[in-house]
């Protein structure tokens, strides 16, 4: 019952780097700063998302509340 989530090295980072496709070429040069910002943001989020999304989401089970 030790804190495995905290203590295990997360393989996710390296996997993600391989998976991330090159940014798509902007259509007709319209790539805006905000589009670039979203791409950067998603890259950052890739790095912090829990590994194994399916299992993590499935395991999040709550008891009822108000």
């Amino acid at each position: 019952m030790a804190g495995q989530e905290q203590q295990q090295p997360q393989p996710r980072d390296s996997e993600v780097e391989e998976e991330v496709p090159a940014p798509p070429a902007p259509a007709e040069g319209q790539a805006s700063a905000s589009t670039q910002g979203v791409d950067d943001l998603l890259d950052e989020i890739d790095g912090v998302l829990e590994s194994n999304a399916e299992e993590f989401v499935r395991a999040f089970v709550q008891k009822g509340g108000q």
Binding site: A2, Q4, E5, V57, F60, V61, Q62, K63, G64, G65
Partner: peptide, 18 residues
């Protein structure tokens, strides 16, 4: 074990908390 806390209102499995 360590504990995570989430400021949300459902587990998306039919349970809600307020």
């Amino acid at each position: 074990p360590p504990v995570n806390l989430y400021k949300n209102n459902t587990d998306n499995k039919s349970v809600s908390y307020g």
